[in-house]
């Protein structure tokens, strides 16, 4: 064995580890077109094992700044007991991973898990930071409450 062979093997191992870590990160922020885009988010402790939100899309295209342009986005939020809270659909939007937001100038359809409430509008921004989940719809908002807002 040549002098310094042990050091070379250490460098090689470090390089393999670096590539492995880089590949792992690439799974979180896809490079190139990604079909069947899926992302699950979980509640804060003590419900960290329960899904809070599911995001999915038919296609995700990386954009400058670490965001994704997502086609046919579907979002579903859940209560801690696993029951569906809200479901939302948008034909085209931008998922900004760093800001934990999804926004679009396009159309949005939202309905509650029990089907008693639905709303739609054009142009929206969904923020899903821990403790601050909000949805802003900027234009032509139409809401239908099936059971009535004020029951007789």
């Amino acid at each position: 064995m040549k002098p310094g062979g042990k050091q070379s093997r250490l460098v090689l191992t470090a390089m393999i580890l670096f590539i492995a870590v880089a590949q792992d990160r690439a799974q979180q922020i896809p490079i190139g077109h990604a079909t069947a885009f899926n992302s699950d988010m979980y509640f804060e402790p003590p419900n960290e094992d329960k899904v809070k939100m599911k995001l999915s899309g038919t296609e995700a295209l990386p954009q400058p700044g670490g965001s994704l342009e997502v086609k046919n986005l579907q979002i579903e939020t859940f209560y801690t007991n696993g029951v569906s809270q809200l479901q939302a659909e948008s034909p085209l939007c931008v998922y900004r991973l760093i800001d934990s937001t999804v926004d679009s100038a396009g159309h949005l359809e939202v309905r509650s898990g029990d089907g008693r409430f639905r709303t739609s509008g054009d142009g929206f921004c969904l923020v899903f930071k821990p403790g601050a989940t909000s949805l802003y719809i900027s234009n032509r908002v139409h809401t239908v409450i099936e059971a009535g807002l004020l029951k007789p």
């Binding site: 509008g121 949805l135 059971a147």
Partner: peptide, 13 residues
Amino acid sequence: PTDINSDSADFDL
């Protein structure tokens, strides 16, 4: 059912 229309809406979930 109740219909609500507006220019914009802000949902604090």
